[in-house]
């Protein structure tokens, strides 16, 4: 029954098992920085969104450490203690900003360290880092929804303005200069069509936010519905184009009316009509400002960020050529 070969086999079997365990522990330990020397730093957050000890800390997308401890300091502050690898010390400065994020749309919670383009000494043991809180998905959706409401308001304003300008017979009669009149009419037509497009876009975005709210969450929605992605791209493109057109239209209108020459200018400067027209134009200007702000807000929206980035790249490319 008991033979030496049995015992050798048993020993190999046990060693193989222990090797598996050791390999796992060593690999995990390396990743979690258990065995290397480390640098402890802290950061205070308002909300750590389910961060756990052992989660990764990343600098420029590279894992440089792990979360060691999470303590609640008071009702609005959570102190997170992180261990960073010693060898990244030369790359992290005291003014780096920590934020809690996720690894992809559905991944682990992680801490991101972001370098700030300002001189600062290198990070040292025990430093407390500044933090920012990236908007949560709910907040993003809220922003998107507000942007959309603004967009609807603006398009209505624009619609009224162009309507007023168009209906103002006195203005057209006074505009003796045929060429100028034609120009103005054309720009107004552009503006009108831009407004229509904008309205459609607003509808699309409304549909988008509603869909996300009711649906399977943004991740599922984006991952599964290819049609939706296409639609989103289209909507943003329309928005951008409308914005460009409007800016152009208003620019030329203003130029023609305000710095114009001939009888138009004279008439406009001292009649009641002129006052009214100025006011209208003022409104239009405000409207475009607001619109531009909204566009800016949309650009920061996480869902549309990618699109705008691409757009910017394309522009940069075009400019370079």
């Amino acid at each position: 029954m008991p033979t030496a070969s049995h015992h050798i086999r048993l020993a190999l079997f046990v060693l193989a098992g222990l090797a598996c365990l050791a390999a796992t522990l060593v690999l995990l330990g390396q990743r979690q920085n258990l065995f290397g020397s480390s640098l402890a730093v802290q950061a205070d957050f308002r909300n750590v969104s389910g961060l756990l000890t052992g989660n990764n800390v990343r600098l420029a997308g590279i894992t440089v450490g792990t979360v060691k401890e999470i303590n609640i300091l008071n009702d609005s502050t959570v102190r997170v203690m992180m261990h960073l690898n010693r060898d990244v010390q030369p790359y992290v400065r005291k003014n780096a900003v920590a934020s809690v994020g996720t690894d992809g749309l559905v991944g682990n919670t992680i801490v991101n360290l972001t370098a700030v383009a300002a001189p600062a000494p290198l990070i040292a043991e025990g430093d407390v880092l500044r933090t920012t809180t990236p908007p949560a998905i709910d907040e993003m959706l809220a922003t998107l929804s507000i942007s959309n409401k603004n967009l609807v308001g603006i398009t209505e304003d624009l619609h009224q303005i162009t309507g007023k300008l168009n209906d103002s017979r006195a203005l057209w009669q006074l505009l003796g200069d045929q060429k100028v009149a034609a120009n103005v009419r054309q720009t107004l037509r552009h503006a009108a069509s831009a407004t229509a497009t904008l309205q459609a876009s607003a509808n699309d975005i409304g549909h988008l936010t509603r869909g996300i709210r009711q649906g399977r969450g943004p991740a599922g929605y984006l991952l599964t519905d290819k049609e939706f992605a296409k639609q989103l791209r289209h909507t943003t493109r329309q928005l951008a184009r409308s914005s460009d057109t409007l800016a152009g239209t208003l620019g030329s209108l203003q130029q023609q009316v305000q710095s114009g020459n001939g009888p138009l200018h004279t008439l406009l400067t001292d009649t009641a009509m002129s006052g009214q027209l100025r006011q209208t134009l003022g409104h239009v200007e405000q409207g475009t400002d607001g619109f531009n702000q909204n566009m800016e807000a949309l650009k920061h929206n996480f869902l549309l960020r990618g699109y705008f980035r691409k757009q910017a790249k394309r522009k940069a490319k075009a400019a370079a050529q």
Partner: peptide
């Protein structure tokens, strides 16, 4: 493959 698995695992899970 190993990075994928180990990247997600913690001691607390193993």
């Amino acid at each position: 493959f190993t990075n994928n698995i180990l990247g997600r695992l913690t001691f607390g899970e193993v």
